[in-house]
Write a protein that binds this DNA or RNA. Structure first.
Lengths: 229, 229
DNA sequence: CGTCCATTTGAGGTGGATCAACCCTAGTGG
DNA sequence: CCACTAGGGTTGATCCACCTCAAATGGACG
């Protein structure tokens, strides 16, 4: 069934509230190198690329949300990152994607051919520098996430998650989570039940408020920061 | 926790500066760019740099072993990577180290100033490409490790660890682990007791043999690969 | 030969997983 | 417009893999 939410107002917020330390990554690179960027839409739950698949494109989320993940042979899943409007994903310096990517909700992306970027990086050292910086940002997130997965308690993980999502997608003090409890669990190395219990406990403590399971208002960021260890 | 500008001369012992000839990742970059590399020694347990400290140098292990880690405020530690002879570590595209680094045993490193590398990358796009590729390799390891920390059982983690160390430091079918059980636990998100019990169980099953707690020979890699999920 | 740690092993506790209802709500069709 | 339904979410009861605490053992080094 086709879906009407090709409109950018459906899921994510098309106006990215992040103050970029530099200009928009894609714009910086594509503008500088005069590359062609196209747009493309994926429906909810649609695969964008698979693990170990050749990396033909690099993507930027325009609207919607994407999960990057790895699977074990028996189906256990680890989500390495959520990609929200403005985020670049699928960037590889090699020829294959190391994680799979799927649209969580209906999602529009901008994309450029990886080869074009590689070519631009070979011509313009500023482009090369930017690509390196983007990979470094991903690495930093992965390093923080290893600490979370290896050493934090369930409540600390959920507190970290809420603060991350608040920072990345809160609008007017409220966040509209695009992902379900199972996705959150697979991101945090927990079960969906444990995530739900932690959120319920925070709700009971007045740390957060709900307007529907995925609409959350943080009422006490300071106590979340303390839990975050 | 000394200032990074003093780091190499403050703690370790300087050796002779050299221009390195060999064809390894570091030499590929430093040799290509004609950079000066110095050698330096750290004693067992000595800090090489701290978390969030300015990144003045990039390092390559010549001999010995290094651990990179993050700490929580109460002392819980997550080791993100072990660096063994040949490995480059401390490479940052920003200005600060994201993890702390310590010598596990007496260690000799080769080092170059980060600014020199940055300069070389600004002049030679091949150098820039190589730096990006090295960061990508670190990211790949971190992504694999997130899957381990978030979703693997204790036995699967230990099996993965043994296969990784076997690949990276086995000589004549035997590996001499430089790190203690606590380090292994902090790498795998387990306690040292759980690591010890898993190794004992593998020993009892004949999957591995000991010659002292840190000298291990793998007798059945295939069964380890199966456990690795 | 004795001291000091690292390691192993044992016993018991527990945080989060598992299994199982139940509830809520958005979407559907009447 | 409302009743129905399906899938996501919550909550409860129980389990168990791993942690914690404790003690014994072993190996390296003076």
């Amino acid at each position: 069934m086709l879906n009407a939410s090709l409109s950018p107002s459906a899921g994510g917020n098309p106006i990215n509230p992040i103050v970029h330390p530099v200009a928009d990554p894609f714009a910086a690179v594509t503008g500088h190198a005069g590359l062609i960027a196209s747009e493309f839409c994926y429906k909810k739950e649609e695969e964008i690329y698979g693990e170990d698949e050749p990396a033909e494109y690099v993507y930027q989320v325009i609207s919607g949300a994407v999960r990057s993940y790895k699977l074990l042979s028996d189906g256990r899943r680890q989500i390495g990152a959520f990609h929200l409007p403005g985020d670049v994903f699928g960037l590889e310096s090699g020829t294959a994607h190391r994680l799979a990517a799927e649209a969580i909700i209906d999602t529009t992306v901008r994309l450029v051919k990886r080869r074009s970027l590689e070519h631009a990086a070979g011509v313009d050292v500023q482009v090369a520098r930017k690509l390196w910086a983007m990979t470094t940002a991903e690495l930093r997130h992965a390093e923080d996430h290893m600490l979370l997965l290896g050493r934090k308690t369930a409540m600390e993980r959920v507190a970290t998650f809420l603060l991350e999502m608040d920072r990345r997608l809160a609008v007017a003090g409220m966040m509209a989570l695009p992902m379900c409890r199972r996705d959150i669990g697979d991101y945090l190395g927990l079960t969906l039940e444990t995530v739900s219990r932690a959120l319920s406990q925070l709700h009971a403590q007045g740390v957060l408020g709900f307007s529907g399971a995925r609409q959350i208002v943080l009422r006490n960021r300071q106590s979340l920061r303390k839990m975050d260890a």
